[in-house]
């Protein structure tokens, strides 16, 4: 087992959305480490995608005490918040190419490339892995995901479930250190969803995996660290406050309902 090392760090990272009464999401003290499985659950609109977008370096936070990234094997933290402020976004492009992998809700495969070319693309863009090595990885992933027979086809010619398996291969082929999956099984029928999710878990063991999902039974009770997003509104004209509640601060009741352990206490102390 690889030694777990931290990759991404959130310390009071705030995203504000205007419109209506407003919305304010605070990510307090969240660390993503290598080999870790992390799930974001919550109702739609609670901010799961917002956190994933910030992790994917495509959404700029509005405030941050610390928001940084450390590539695998390096001991130097890169200050993402400072990069956002300096607008030197080409740095993000480099991080996205080398360290991040994505599984999107509907696959997000490029329609004008074959499945094989779609999967090869991140490896070729990364450019640092010898061709022979990533080709072997591609072959391995294709076999595991049972998509070898689809490699020469175009994405529009394969089923939604198959497309999602191809997307998993594309997310993993370039050995990213952090894989982000936004509702990866939302568009699949339950049995297929089950299989795809299981494959994603099994094949992404070398990297950190962050999954957003509204189906908490898929992640609760597994080795996932489950973070729960909770929205609170004190009055209609006050902004909605969204918070990330870490696993240790809530539990599920015997009926399957969520019971917050320390939220009320915390809220109370903040109000005073």
């Amino acid at each position: 087992m690889l030694l777990s090392e931290p990759l991404m760090r959130f310390e009071r990272v705030v995203k504000i959305r205007r419109g209506g009464a407003g919305y304010r999401l605070t990510v307090d003290n969240l660390i993503v480490s290598s080999g870790e499985r992390l799930a974001l659950i919550g109702d739609s609109g609670s901010g799961k995608s917002t956190i994933l977008d910030m992790m994917a370096l495509v959404l700029k936070p509005d405030e941050a005490d610390d928001f940084s990234f450390k590539p695998m094997g390096s001991d130097k933290w890169q200050d993402l918040w400072k990069t956002w402020q300096s607008k030197r976004l080409t740095r993000f492009e480099a991080i996205r190419r080398s360290s991040l992998g994505y599984v999107m809700q509907t696959g997000g495969l490029l329609p004008f490339l074959t499945v094989r070319d779609n999967i090869s693309l991140p490896a070729e863009l990364k450019g640092t892995i010898p061709t022979k090595i990533w080709r072997e990885k591609l072959k391995y992933l294709a076999e595991e995901l049972k998509i070898t027979h689809l490699l020469t086809k175009y994405p529009t010619k394969v089923s939604v479930g198959e497309r999602q398996r191809c997307a998993i291969a594309r997310a993993l082929v370039h050995n990213p250190s952090l894989v982000l999956a936004d509702e990866p099984t939302a568009s699949l029928d339950p049995p297929t969803a089950e299989r795809v999710f299981e494959l994603l878990l099994r094949l992404s063991q070398d990297c950190a995996l962050v999954v957003s999902t509204h189906e908490h039974r898929r992640v609760v009770g597994t080795d996932f660290k489950v973070y729960r997003l909770l929205c609170r509104s004190t009055s209609p004209d006050q902004p909605i406050e969204a918070m990330v509640i870490p696993p240790e601060e809530y539990r599920f009741s015997d009926e399957g309902k969520v019971e917050t352990i320390s939220l009320e206490k915390k809220k109370t102390s903040e109000l005073h």
Partner: peptide, 13 residues
């Protein structure tokens, strides 16, 4: 647009 944004996400400038 969708394809181009996916390419951007994969790290194309």
């Amino acid at each position: 647009r969708r394809s181009l944004s996916v390419l951007a996400l994969l790290g194309l400038s």
